[in-house]
Design a protein around this nucleic acid. Structure first.
Lengths: 184, 184
DNA sequence: GTCTATAACCAGATAGAC
DNA sequence: GTCTATCTGGTTATAGAC
């Protein structure tokens, strides 16, 4: 808790905005979450408005996601690659939640889409095409396979994290099955 | 526009709630959308509160979805089945949007989950197991395949409808590729 | 059933003491 | 930098005439 107040406000804002949506969260709650007196305007010594703290929280999270991004070049097997993509989606969860909840009303939507596409949900069609040409996996519409796998991973993540209920099989079986469907 | 006022309020509420979230929509907007004088309390002659109209709109939409549901027994080929599932998801879009945006704060969340699972996103593992035993498609973890296909369709639908941007290949290619991945 | 008018409340935001 | 106190505006909800 030694972080400064501005950071604590940003942490609180990201968590609450992602969990309940921007409109549903009051400045008073942000103050309370940051250890300030609720209802005091102390929030406004750090941010000009609720929109301002939203923009700052999104920008900080994008920067963090871009910094953390690991190349994960296609060296490992497909199953490990898909597992890594699911992990990346976990890491991007707050941004994904904000994007799902707020849609186009978010600041910097395009940068968010870029981070999600590049860092998280990228299943490379070119890599698949190489494997197909080498005869390692069956010949199919490579872009189609890449999209299908990508959407299966994103859908699974969203179902697990947002819809709450059981979504069929667990991560291990999903990843293994996807690799099998691509590979044979 | 010959529908009665209550119905017009419900229509407006479902559309606006799904598009922008419940908190972001004011009773005044609901009145305006239903052709009532904005800011007049006329809304309250039909519903007791905003939560009340939300509950009624959700209930009506669940009923509609359950009534419209067609058995779609596994008579056709896999591609047609997946296409039909995408169409069913389109039909359930308002409920899906509400579930994504509001999560557990929605009334009757369990019934909504049930409708989505039964009517929209059901890829039957038992059907796949039959096809595997008959040798029509390769032997694999049937539940795993069912989950993977289901999540790919849900993810594709969400990406298309919520994230806005291009999501890879179009519906025809996605459906065809999925059928190919399951079938060979 | 709809309107005008308004009450009651709460959230966003500001002023000024400490 | 945080507090108490307050302003302002918008939102829910009600009262009563038509």
């Amino acid at each position: 808790m030694g972080r400064d107040t501005r950071t604590r406000i940003l942490d609180t804002a990201l968590a609450l905005f992602a969990a309940r949506g921007v409109e549903a969260v009051t400045v008073t709650e942000l103050e309370e979450g940051a250890g300030l007196s609720p209802g005091s305007g102390s929030f406004y010594r750090h941010f000009a408005s609720k929109q301002d703290v939203l923009a700052a929280a999104v920008a900080r999270e994008i920067d963090r996601a871009e910094a953390r991004r690991v190349p994960t070049a296609g060296t490992s097997d497909l199953g490990s690659e898909y597992r890594a993509t699911l992990d990346a989606l976990d890491d991007l969860r707050p941004l994904l939640a904000l994007l799902v909840r707020e849609g186009g009303r978010l600041p910097e939507v395009e940068r968010i889409r870029g981070v999600l596409a590049e860092g998280g949900a990228r299943i490379d069609a070119a890599r698949l095409r190489d494997l197909m040409e080498a005869g390692t996996i069956p010949e199919r519409d490579a872009e189609g396979v890449a999209t299908a796998v990508m959407m299966a991973l994103v859908g699974f993540h969203l179902a697990e994290r947002f819809f709450g209920g059981p979504v069929g099989v667990d991560r291990d079986r999903l990843v293994a099955t996807l690799a099998s469907m691509v590979g044979t």
